[in-house]
């Protein structure tokens, strides 16, 4: 409190950028969602007409919107627990030792996270191809029938989610590993002397100590999956039959492919409110305390 301006000086540059590039656009979306803005309207603002809540009404009646919303829900239910469980398990195992081998292994687990989807989608597309893909070829060598990984309306959700899990765990492994490092090894060794079994040790000591890491990973992972876009966009374009179209992809198609910006803005606001709602529920009662 002695230097009342200091905190503002610290946060100002980042805040300004965030306000301009993060908050302003969603504020712009609000008025746009009440208009019929399309590509022509974007070029010449006098051609935009006020549409009231017509966009929202149409959204509620749009089967494709509900399909995308349902798909997103399924993706999140598949992806979030898997990402959290896999990254925690991998981090725990990687934490086991500090030797060269284990350190080298880390790079392998982090690698998928650092690669661009543009690049890896190609590879996955070839691997998962029904007729000519390597995965089905391997299945056939052990006598299993080929699966339509990216072509079956049900299976496609799992395949697309699988690629996203593959890409999504690396960062969370880093976070969990960082958090695990903060638990003094003596705690664990002491517990071992007490005869605590591996599983009990994890449940009773490690997980409570990693409360914050878990919450952080959960919140960011949920947000990421509700905004799920990259994998379906590049792997399936939302197909087959729209069964892998996520809500973000739907909004992209309405906004950029169909040029219906008013409609897409309305959908975006709905998505934003859903994300905000889910996040607030997660955070409720579990405050991110700043001064522990």
């Amino acid at each position: 409190m002695k230097q009342p301006l200091a905190p503002y000086a610290f946060i100002a540059p980042a805040m300004i950028l965030l306000l301009v590039f993060g908050v302003l656009p969603i504020l712009v979306a609000l008025p746009v969602s009440l208009t019929d803005m399309n590509l022509a309207g974007l070029a010449d603002w006098s051609r935009i007409e006020f549409a009231g809540v017509a966009n929202f009404r149409e959204l509620v009646a749009d089967d494709a919107f509900w399909q995308a919303l349902t798909n997103t829900g399924i993706f999140a239910l598949l992806g979030v627990p898997t990402v959290i469980a896999v990254s925690f398990a991998a981090a725990l195992l990687l934490h086991r030792s500090e030797n060269r081998f284990f350190r080298a292994l880390r790079a392998f687990y982090f690698a998928p996270a650092i690669t661009a989807i543009v690049a890896v989608s190609l590879v996955w597309g070839y691997l998962l191809n029904t007729r000519f893909g390597l995965v089905n070829h391997l299945l056939s060598t052990v006598g299993l029938p080929p699966a339509r990984w990216l072509g079956d309306p049900v299976l496609v959700k799992f395949s697309v989610a699988l690629v996203a899990v593959w890409r999504g765990t690396g960062l969370n492994i880093i976070i969990f590993l960082a958090a695990l490092k903060t638990i003094p090894r003596e705690y664990l060794e002491a517990a071992e002397l007490d005869g605590a079994s591996g599983a009990r040790k994890i449940v009773s000591i490690v997980i409570p100590l990693l409360r914050f890491a878990f919450l952080f990973v959960a919140v960011t992972t949920v947000i990421a999956w509700l905004q799920f876009f990259d994998e379906p966009f590049v792997l399936t374009k939302g197909g087959p039959l729209g069964e892998s179209t996520s809500i973000s992809l739907f909004l992209y198609q309405e906004g950029f492919s169909a040029g219906r910006f008013g409609y897409a803005a309305a959908g975006t606001l709905v998505l934003f409110l859903i994300i905000a709602g889910v996040t607030l529920v997660q955070l409720r009662g579990r405050r991110f305390d700043a001064d522990r």
Partner: peptide, 17 residues
């Protein structure tokens, strides 16, 4: 005809499938 949505035209033709 193949019913896989991701059937590759070129490989299909070249392989004779």
């Amino acid at each position: 005809v193949p019913a896989d949505p991701d059937f590759d035209q070129i490989q299909g033709f070249v392989s004779g499938a």
